[in-house]
Design a protein around this nucleic acid. Structure first.
Lengths: 343, 343
DNA sequence: AGCGGTCTGGAGAGCGCTCTCCAATATGCT
DNA sequence: AGCATATTGGAGAGCGCTCTCCAGACCGCT
């Protein structure tokens, strides 16, 4: 024969019908053990491997999922591939968690990038063409329109982090308030009395939650008013915020920054002002990103269980593919405090 | 209707046959422009999207390729996902190059990992099942058995770096000798007179080539004998080699290490011995890996055009998929010298 | 006008598989 | 034993698409 063997070939070799071979392969219904054995031998003898396309055509399943890295940016000029996305250990951890869950099931993710509107349309088409059964979305920005596109298209998808607007889509997220509370507890336990915080942009949910969680926890510790300067999750905004904090509250002895990048900036500003960290001022970040380790001194921060979250995301997606009408769910994970040297 | 529209639906809506619609979609043969327009409108009206499985079934093409990260390690215990592979900027650059080339063609790579024998068998099956048309292999070790498995299986595949044993498989590689020559020229131009080198393990082709290239170039500059200590591409081996070099040739004023990791180790050893880099001893590495930038001082090194190489790899693979009987080819890329502070 | 040649659209045969029916056989019960 | 009831294998109908063949229309030429 020229092509690879088909079910028909195996059936002929085993002296049974196609249906029986199919049943043996898919382990569906009862098949006489003796016949099963014959079939297995015929499969081995012919070197048969099922054709995925034919199978997909009838089952309407491909057995593969898309891992989509998406952004909100309309920047979308000639940036065919965001190289730096790989440099980001966050993405590596997500991919690790997803693959860790899917691989034992024989599923391998297809990597898609969606920073531009055109690319987002491609992702939707990709799923509509049945090239993948569903998508795991990791958005780098909050305002990403892709989740809505997928939901509107009735395509199975799950999200890393809660969508800014309510959307009937399952997601996983971290308990931001709990994380902020860990930071507060740690600063208080260290003996900090004059604590301030640098929040993220307050139109972002996570930033709101981290601020609220921090203030609530500090209030519980008897510090009802915590100075806060709003940042933008960037290095520059963090530096500016820290400068202002120092100007307005020169006696500050503890700072909680809503992400590591701003904490890193804070560290630099404190250093410039001759303040020793953690002795004069203790600093806690959030995310446990690569920045946390690069800091001097290494940053005490709040770590997301990213791998676990990613694995759960994969599980949620498969469940939704299995039962499309199931209610959407969200799973919230507790973060952990990672104590390094900055606090 | 329940399911999504099919070719049949579009044909009915346009008042033509399935074949005509198919021809319009695939742009094959001539179709009356008026009819084409009608068909396009019918496609838009029905929201038709071709079903990939049905298409693949008859064309025997999936239009997708596998990007396989493979290792030789039989270590294969419970390491379901090599998280650190993403941390490696080399992989990021490869992925970037591959995606950059494939994405405009509407092809998205499927990520596969193959560190264990079982995983390698899975990769072969993946291709045999027709889940992807071919594989781009990035081996982390030289002794990877996967290339041979794929060649033996008659499956389209291409390789990053020349296989240790001759194998009928296309690959891209970097001109190691040319790179080594760049290093030699630079050291000589700096005025180094007593130059030595730390080679990689000499059972690895790349290590042999780098050493030979370096020696040849130095000979051209009138330095026929260049001391060499064999390392193993690791930090430890690099440190040991540098120690020995210093002991045997205390007056060395220039070192070429066959990769950045060993160069980094050399830098550390030189620092411990109170030698100033680059003033007392100039050091050149190879690879321009992340280590190069992390070094103190930042490492002068030889950079592979990884993205270009990866893109070429993708091109080679598609060509092979298109014409399976074509002769295998190899494309060798010239590296570039990146001058930083260490030399 | 008549003929070979070219161009265009339609009909229909599969691609390899799953899965619903059916028939045939085995099993349980009175 | 005799019937209803599982249990198991086979036959065959598609899944949605591409592509080969064929027929008809149209062209230019002698």
């Amino acid at each position: 024969m020229s092509g690879s063997p088909t079910l028909e070939d195996v059936a002929r070799a085993a002296g049974v019908s196609r249906a029986t071979v199919s049943r043996v392969i898919n382990g569906v219904r009862n098949v006489n053990p003796a016949i099963q054995e014959t079939v297995r031998q015929a499969i081995a003898a012919t070197g048969y491997v099922p054709n995925q396309a034919a199978r997909s055509l009838v089952t309407r399943r491909t057995g593969s999922v898309a891992l989509v890295v998406s952004g909100a940016g309309v920047e979308g000029e000639e940036n065919p591939f965001p190289n730096q996305v790989f440099a980001d250990p966050f993405f590596g951890r997500v991919a690790g968690g997803v693959v860790g869950y899917l691989r034992p099931l024989g599923i391998h993710p297809v990597l898609l990038f969606a920073e531009t509107d055109a690319a987002r349309a491609e992702v939707v088409d990709y799923l509509r063409q049945g090239k993948a059964d569903g998508a795991i979305l990791v958005s780098t920005h909050g305002e990403d329109p892709l989740p809505k596109l997928l939901v509107d298209g009735g395509l199975p998808a799950v999200l890393f982090a809660r969508p800014p607007e309510p959307l009937p889509i399952s997601y996983v997220d971290v308990a931001h308030r709990t994380g902020a509370k860990l930071a507060a507890d740690h600063l208080v336990a260290r003996g900090c009395h004059r604590v301030a915080t640098i929040s993220g942009p307050l139109d972002v949910l996570a930033a709101q939650d981290r601020l609220a969680g921090f203030r609530d926890a500090m209030a519980m510790h008897g510090h009802p008013y915590i100075p806060c300067v709003e940042g933008a999750f960037t290095l520059d905004s963090g530096a500016a915020a820290m400068e202002r904090l120092l100007a307005e509250h020169p006696d500050v002895d503890g700072v909680f920054a809503a992400n590591d990048l701003m904490a890193q900036a804070a560290l630099q500003v404190l250093h410039r002002h001759g303040r020793l960290v953690p002795d004069d001022v203790a600093v806690v970040g959030f995310d446990d990103s690569s920045a946390a380790l690069a800091c001097k001194p290494p940053l005490t921060t709040i770590r997301h269980p990213v791998e676990d979250m990613a694995a759960e995301l994969a599980r949620l997606l498969l469940a939704q593919i299995e039962q499309p009408d199931q209610r959407v769910t969200s799973v919230i994970f507790d973060p952990a405090l990672v104590v390094r040297e900055s606090a």
